[in-house]
Design a protein around this nucleic acid. Structure first.
Lengths: 216, 216
DNA sequence: GCAAATTAATGATTTATTCAAG
DNA sequence: CTTGAATAAATCATTAATTTGC
């Protein structure tokens, strides 16, 4: 829709040289992919069968082994992807957390970052995110634990299920590489006796199967 | 607890002169009241009332009054509270929104802010928040509207399931290492509309969940 | 034993919710 | 009541661990 040669956004923002100095307000919250905003990216690179896994595997024929220099631990981001905290940094952050720090303000983050920088590369936003995540995940854990005690007692059984599923994500084309994957036989706990469960067989079928106590 | 005269936070951050130069990452996301975090902040600096807002608000002592040059409309924050967009600014922002802009990146915000600044005082974070809020509220509105209608679209298939299972084999002792494993979110095809499916959440619970068409 | 396969952990974003100024 | 601002929750994505098949 409205796919003229130049859209409103272009007209509005063109001619601005983008000074990269004063993006103070963005470095934290706006480091996002352009995914959501460019609905019509040129399909130039899609056909190349771009696969993330090619990047995951180490492209050097040999490596690995269990060498592990000695400060390998974490950090040391080459091209620089995401922050990898060092043990010292984690230790200090947890100490601060235990001490009650939850939502540090600008000044506090600034100071912490300075101190933590002594033990490895780190930015303020890393500290900010760390507290956000740590706080949230501690909350989750507590909630889970409290719920666990809640209704735990009876009717815990076990059963086997084999699932074959398609791992393609939602938006992927996936017509070429099926990318199937088979979850092997799992032992599933927590099934209740008076309910029924399902089993996925093959690629497309899903059939009901009753819970059979299955010795154990 | 452990309310000694100096807590960990103090020890950790003291002696830092607070350079006000590189607070780049904070000006957006950390402008929060200190309320939530400091049950027992050292009263030393709290009295100083360090507030990020001091950077946001224009530090000119006088202004306001009912002078109102000629672009009076809105804006012209006195002591400096929050952004008051002008009609021109709103108009331009809405135009950009209609044109598809949803989550602008750093550069885009920078450019928009520069342009919008011609029509009244504005900062990058205002633009950022405007899109966040406008997007969210449009979504709310749409959801409300769609619920009004019969929410008819009984689309078929495609659903997500998340399983948490115990991977111990049959005969294993398994008393020591729980060895839990979590199957992430899979796209399961071939589900039928008039059936029900299950979801395993947490480690032990398994609850029924209906197939929800899940737009797409 | 190694390397691919796959999971768990967690850093980083995005979305939903809440607060409060006007 | 509207809406800018702030926080929390949910989600996505990447990396370190772990497991499994030769």
């Amino acid at each position: 829709m409205g796919s003229s040669s130049m859209n409103v956004q272009d007209q509005f923002t063109r001619g601005l040289p983008w000074e990269h100095e004063s993006l103070s307000f963005l470095t934290l919250a706006c480091c996002k992919r352009l995914s959501t905003l460019a609905p019509k990216l040129p399909a130039t690179t899609t056909a190349t069968a771009f696969d993330l896994k090619s990047f995951i595997r180490p492209e050097n024929g040999f490596k690995k082994s269990n060498h592990i220099p000695e400060t390998p631990q974490v950090e040391t981001l080459p091209g620089g992807t995401r922050w990898n905290p060092t043990q010292e940094q984690i230790g200090l952050l947890e100490m601060l957390y235990r001490d009650g720090m939850r939502t540090p303000n600008a000044q506090q983050i600034e100071q912490m970052t300075a101190q933590l920088g002594k033990y490895g590369k780190i930015e303020g936003k890393n500290v900010f995110y760390w507290f956000q995540n740590h706080k949230a995940r501690e909350r989750q854990k507590q909630k889970r634990d409290s719920l666990g005690r809640g209704h735990c007692p009876r009717t815990y059984t076990a059963t086997i299920a084999t699932l074959t599923v398609d791992t393609r994500r939602h938006g992927e084309t996936g017509d070429e590489s099926p990318n199937k994957r088979k979850c092997r036989t799992w032992l599933i706990e927590g099934l209740e006796e008076d309910k029924e469960y399902y089993k996925v067989e093959g690629d497309k079928t899903l059939e009901l199967f009753p819970l059979h106590p299955e010795a154990r």
